[in-house]
Amino acid sequence: MQQLTVKEINTLVNGEVVGEYTGTITGLERIDKAGVGELTFIGNLKFSKKWDTSEASVAIVYEGIKIDPGAGKAFIKVKNPDLAMAQVLEVYLPDSPHFETDIHPTAVIDESARVGKGCRIGANTYVGKGVILGEGVTLYPNVSVFDHTSIGDHTTVWSGTVIRERSEIGKHCIFHANVSIGADGFGYRPSEQGLTKIPHIGHVVIGNHVEIGANSCVDRGKFSATVLGDGCKIDNLVQIGHNSVLGRFCIMAGNSGLAGSVTLGDGVVIGGSASIKDHTTIHSGATVGAGSGVMNDVGPGKTVVGYPACDSRDMLKQWVALRKLGKS
């Protein structure tokens, strides 16, 4: 693991050093578990109260912190500790799992597939007919990429992921374990036979720098495409229904879900366990609070909470009124 001095870390994050620690940083850890020689961070006042009992030698802190580091310890003051810590974590990132050979002999790759320079394909991975892999793509063991799918340069796909036929994946994406891309959408209609399945003949289009967490699903479109724009970040256990369209840099937290044909503008944030009704539009910059149920369109920059969701200020007034009612 990399070991840096306080001066080297400060140069990396462009901060201001307060106090003195002359050793090297041997690791990174949370404030209540860090030991001597380790670096932690203090992002707000709540965590600053734990510094007196912490054994950490150095902390990256917000620039307005009111406490001193103490003897033999140091603070690195920055404007945004979270972003600074992300830079340091990149340096201390452990090596990825090792490939003994770039393409494992048990991988099955159709002869019509095009595999770019520097690709790595793990054991028991399947690459189907007409698949195109850009340069530096990594497919870990037990990945399935079905026919006529394209995957852009330097995308990483972790084990258990299934990418169905005709999907279009951008560059520098990360799909974590057991992601499902391009499964049939959920569509049935009552008939004399019971429930008739609605065929889904569309596909999935995913932009660049998209990250999708473990066990999340992006269903194919009924007619055209389900789309995730550049820079979207999807947590674990998220459902994105058929023909939904996400703009750029949207965030969806764990256990949230979009029904079919939902549209998200740029920079929309969906909180954990939130549910969005089909054919709903959530405009750019809007936020949906955790656990909310969105039944109607949400305007640009609005924040909605509750079930059914409404403007956060109105919902807070309702909660206050209910609390008072219980005391009357």
Rank of each mutant, 00 (worst) to 15 (best):
K324H: 03
Y21L: 06
H242Y: 12
T287C: 10
L322P: 05
F146M: 04
L316F: 11
E211G: 01
I9P: 05
I151D: 00
T24E: 15
I42H: 02
D219I: 12
V210A: 03
Y188E: 02
L83R: 06
E8H: 06
R189W: 12
V61W: 07
G202I: 08
A286W: 15
P94G: 05
V304E: 01
V88R: 11
G265K: 15
G116V: 03
V205N: 09
L133P: 00
P97G: 02
I181F: 15
E168S: 09
D219K: 11
W319H: 11
F47P: 01
H203Q: 03
C310I: 14
T156F: 13
I270G: 01
G134D: 02
A309D: 05
S96M: 09
G23I: 05
L246P: 10
L139Y: 11
T149I: 10
K327P: 01
M1T: 01
F75W: 11
D32I: 08
G285P: 07
H200E: 05
A84R: 08
V131Y: 15
V288Q: 01
L39S: 02
N243Q: 09
V245K: 06
E165G: 02
D230E: 06
Y92E: 04
L264R: 09
G272S: 13
S144K: 08
D32V: 14
S180H: 03
T101I: 13
S48A: 13
V269H: 13
G35T: 11
G257S: 06
V157D: 00
I132D: 06
G35E: 09
F249W: 07
R248T: 07
